[in-house]
Amino acid sequence: NPLPGGCSLLEIERITQSVVKSHIETSQYSTEELKRMAWTLYNPEETRSYQTKSAEVMWQQCAIHITNAIQYVVEFAKRISGFMDLCQNDQIILLKAGCMDVLLIRMCRAYNPINNTLLFDGKFATPQFFKALGCDDLVNAVFDFAKSLSRIQMSEEDMALFSAAVLLSPDRPWLTDVLKIQKLQDKVYVALQRCLQKQGASEEKLAKMVSKLPIMKSICNLHIDKLQFFRLVHPETAYTFPPLYREVFGS
């Protein structure tokens, strides 16, 4: 039977393997490691010490962690078959526009819904832990998103393919070869659909995943707004943020 988008079964199998392999190879922590760490929480004293840091120090630390994670996302993208065939202009646009989305999807692996905690610097932390950042709305939005995504119970394969589909969004502004990216994304979505079918997942699972896209966009925008405000208030500190962070989130 012909598959949607005119792609062959072999092509779909190939892209599934490539995306899942690159996701696993470029995840900062394996599922086993995350399981082992899930109950390693910051104690009240440690939490207080983070809460009483200055906004500058806490922002700097978060920027470093995000930058580290971005490097893995770049590597994830590079290993998706077809991504490196795009022109470098498009590769950069897709990464700049989509890496925060991918980070948000990946983050749900490092989220514990039982106690609403998230892995940060080796231990699990509550939303209150990030008080010093001075952006409770952003922090709460990130935790709420992680909670809602964890409810979908995505497998590693789902997560890999969903991340790739989001990264390969052909509607990002200033792209050169929209059609090529559209074709790649179509293939990834077909692969994701097949993967869900194989698992015997309900039809709505994909719809549930796709319904998270606007929330992800609003979190990305909120992060940029907060960063711009931080830059205004603390220009010297913002200037010392890792160069890659400044490149990705600069205008």
Partner: peptide, 20 residues
């Protein structure tokens, strides 16, 4: 290119931080 120097480098590098 200058504006995205590091991204360009990361995309061109065959050995990435992940491998190191």
């Amino acid at each position: 290119k200058e504006k995205h120097k590091i991204l360009h480098q990361l995309l061109q590098n065959s050995t990435s931080p992940v491998d190191l």
